[in-house]
Amino acid sequence: MNLLYLIKETFRTINRNREQFVLSSVVLGICLLLLSLFLMVTLNIMNLVKSSSELAEVYAFVDEEITNSPLLLETLEQRIASIAGVVAVRFFPKEQALEELRRDLGPDTTVLTVLGENPIPPSIRIKIHPDYTTPEHINTLEQKLLLLPGITEVWSGKEFVAQLNQALKTAVVIDIIFLIIIVISVLFIVFQTVENSVLNRSEEIQIMELVGASRIAIHTPFFIQGALQGLLGSVLSGVLLFLVYRIIKTFIPFPIFIPAPFLAGEIVLGIILGLGGTFIALARIPSTLLTMPAGFHRKFRTSKLG
């Protein structure tokens, strides 16, 4: 069948069932939006994990006495620098640490007033190569550092990274569950729309079958309809996602948006789900069409649509 004519027939079908088509496309878009939102959260956690790993610094707190001996301090720094995975070593005297804390706290210095004397011990801040930021490497480094004389305590922030990793795993699991639920929901939405379109066109389909139209000629307008519905839903979801992102951005300074390949993937997913729903609907219906007496479809449609 001529492609232009098929498209014309598709729009004729959609027009006949337009309320349901529009409504179900919106619902489909909202379903995909939910999936996108979870995906965006996951991507942001992934980004956080990545940047935390990249910025990984281990704090080795040192005995105050050692700071009085530049030679001992230099030796200690050299020994730390020689440990595998250590990229840079920087001594941080307690005054500088207090200054940093004051900067972090901003105008509210009540805490510092309560504390009185500077409680922060001097430290050596150790920058780790990204390849050595795994929990195993950090543990090894911690153990090595604690064996060095003059080091009283080590803080690596690995608990924070571990928590982030846990959150990431949870987010991925939620994403997968959401993906399954949304795939089923979208398939069902498209299935329902196409099923009603088929019933709306049942008389035409009967005639097409009787005059010798091929299955492809009969089915193609429905597949175009399903694909259009998937496309419309996914584009709508992309637009809504962008609006939500703009709103979130006013509260959180640097959220990351879903990258273009993901958005393109979502559009492809929408189209595939549209085609899938159509396939299921067509596989279920047409074999019964011809065997039904004339007028059956109208009655069936009426009873079905209430």
Partner: peptide, 26 residues
């Protein structure tokens, strides 16, 4: 095939009813 109840497509003109058949069979 011709039926007693005609089975024409009510939303299409005479021309379109015939065109529909010819399009359907390529």
């Amino acid at each position: 095939i011709i039926f007693q109840d005609f089975r024409l497509l009510p939303e299409r003109t005479v021309y379109e009813n015939l065109e529909f058949v010819l399009r359907a069979i390529n």
